[in-house]
Design a protein around this nucleic acid. Structure first.
Length: 512
RNA sequence: CGCGGGGUGGAGCAGUCCGGUAGCUCGUUGGGCUCAUAACCCAAAGGUCGACAGUUCAAAUCUGUCCCCCGCAACCA
């Protein structure tokens, strides 16, 4: 069976999840659900990054021990993801014991391979930020821009990864046209960064004096493994590297690393180099998606426009949030979340177009066909149109153009609403043209069946509800027969269940 | 000359690579229908496609110059 291993970035737990975090996880979930429905053997990994000085600092501010704080935050993330109906197979935490083992063994492996060497790292550290800065971050006076104080210069012994050794191989890989890094503009950017002299061997550990909350270098507790190896290795831990060889060989390499555009460099340069050194196959695809702004502004705690996904879901439902985020925004570019647009879009598409189509169709079936799916052949033109939609959706999902996939689905919904208006089945039945009327209704039902399948990855609850009202006793997510079920027909004689609106319109006056 | 994204009817966007009647959604106005969730369908109004210049029979689309907005430093995917 064709496997599909998709990962997301793991989020720092120094703050609560916001809509930007959710965006990427939902994208991964859409893919996971879509390919499961296609019958593929899917593994969807997400999780949190719990190490680092920022987390330690956040814990201290909260008056907790780091581990205690991480347990709490990790729980919060999982709660949020549950609310959003994320169907991940494993939630990784970098404090997991087995991850600690993986990171240490990986470190040792790279070192044994001669790719990690001891060097001296010099940097600058701002006491106010409690963080490392870069020279170019400083203001004109050489001060930290936030704290207006001179940062502390320091030099310490620590370990470096020999990136320079892999630059040629990386260049080759990135140029191989194997659609490795996407979007294309990001691939070119990364290729350019490879030629940058500033991109040299990078530090992979810190001394305990500057970083305590992390995984120690094996046999050298005074050195703590720095973020790159620790965080990136989660993709290996998640599928059982060193602990479950069967799982590893089943899923590795990843088919897709889904990441924010800001960390493309680490995934497209550092990570493959580490894998090369470890002698592991490289990921097939890395996609750096755009960010979500809120009401036209960057998500920022200072501005105070952080949107809490849990709150959003509790108010509007997971489907509405999932749907809006991916219908309104091209995935490779930045998109905006505006409450007014959100309500407009969701009401128009989910309630008015789709919900009402289902509702009017089922009411007609109840009234004129005794609530049973008529035994007729569907009309060919619309049936072909819906065949086409499946193909188009497949293509767009493959290229991660979610908005285009949704657009194609709703074009079919619109067409079907128009079809009912034109064919007027209620009039056909009144004129005793029963065969014609039944054909029209069967066609609409059949399209609704396909729409619910196509929509399932995006709006699982809504799709399941349509599936249920169409009279199925099976659960939509248990279907996994590859393509064939897509081309079947809704069974004649099946009793439909008209349970009223599947999506209640949001009252736009309740915008705060 | 630091890098990148963007400026298209009231709002949000597509189209720009591979020049050829400017398209979609929402909103507005008028009409239709009554199966349906004040829904659905039809029609109309509304744009010198940031500015200027150039290439061309023809430019939103190619070339050049310029203007404006937003990221790239911090909390932050």
């Amino acid at each position: 069976m064709d496997k599909y291993y998709v990962t997301t970035a793991i989020d720092y737990v120094n703050a609560l999840p916001h809509i930007g975090h959710a965006y990427e996880k939902i994208a991964a979930d859409i893919l996971a659900r879509y390919y499961r429905l296609q019958g593929r053997d899917v593994f969807f990994l997400t999780g949190v990054d719990e190490h680092g000085s920022k987390v330690e600092k956040a814990a201290r501010l909260a008056g907790m021990q780091p581990q205690q704080y991480c347990d709490l935050m990790s729980e919060k993330f999982q709660q949020a993801w549950a609310k959003l109906d994320l169907s991940y197979n494993y939630f990784i935490r970098t404090t997991d014991e087995r991850h600690v083992t993986v990171v240490q063994k990986l470190f040792r492996q790279l070192k044994d391979n001669g790719d990690i060497y001891k060097g001296s790292y010099s940097g600058i550290y701002c006491e106010g930020c409690e963080d490392y800065l870069r020279e170019r971050d400083l203001d004109a006076d050489g001060n930290c821009p936030s704290h207006k104080q001179k940062p502390r210069q320091f030099t310490e012994e620590n370990y470096f990864f020999c990136l320079s050794k892999y630059k040629d191989k990386l260049r080759q890989w990135l140029s191989s046209g194997d659609c490795v890094v996407q979007p294309e503009s990001r691939r070119r950017e990364v290729l350019k960064q490879l030629d940058d002299a500033e991109l040299s061997d990078f530090s992979v550990s810190r001394s305990r004096s500057s970083l305590t909350w992390g995984i120690p270098v094996p046999d050298e507790p005074e050195q703590i493994i720095y973020v790159w190896i620790d965080a990136l290795a989660n993709y290996l831990t998640g599928v059982g590297y060193l602990t479950d060889p069967d799982c590893l060989s089943r899923y590795w390499p990843a088919d897709l690393h889904l990441i924010g555009k800001d960390i493309t460099k680490f995934h497209a340069i550092y990570w493959p180099a580490i894998l090369m050194s470890a002698g592991l196959p490289l990921p097939k695809r890395i996609f750096g998606h755009g960010f979500i702004t809120v009401e036209g502004q960057k998500i920022s705690k200072t501005i105070g426009n952080v949107v809490d996904p849990i709150c959003l879901v509790e108010t509007y439902g997971a489907d509405a949030v999932r749907f809006f985020l991916f219908s309104a925004t091209p995935f490779d570019q930045d998109g905006d979340f505006s409450k007014q647009d959100f309500i407009n879009k969701v009401n128009a598409e989910l309630a008015n177009n789709l919900g009402n189509l289902l509702n009017r169709t089922l009411t007609l079936v109840e009234r004129y066909c005794g609530g049973k799916v008529p035994a007729r052949a569907p009309e060919n033109n619309l049936r072909e149109a819906s065949n086409e939609v499946s193909v188009v959706v497949d293509k767009h999902i493959e290229s991660l153009e979610f908005a285009k996939a949704i657009e194609a689905i709703f074009a079919l919904v619109d067409e079907t609403n128009k079809y009912l208006n034109d064919e007027k089945p209620w009039a056909l039945f009144k004129d005793n043209k029963t065969v014609e009327g039944e054909t029209v209704l069967l066609t609409a039902l059949e399209i609704l069946r396909r729409v619910s399948l196509c929509l399932y990855p995006f709006t699982p609850q809504l799709a399941s509800e349509i599936w249920y009202q169409l009279g199925y006793h099976t659960k939509i997510e248990t279907l996994a027969h590859g393509d064939d079920f897509m081309w079947e027909l809704i069974p004649a004689g099946q009793l439909i269940r008209n349970k009223g609106p599947i999506f209640k319109r949001i009252d736009s006056s309740c915008v705060d």
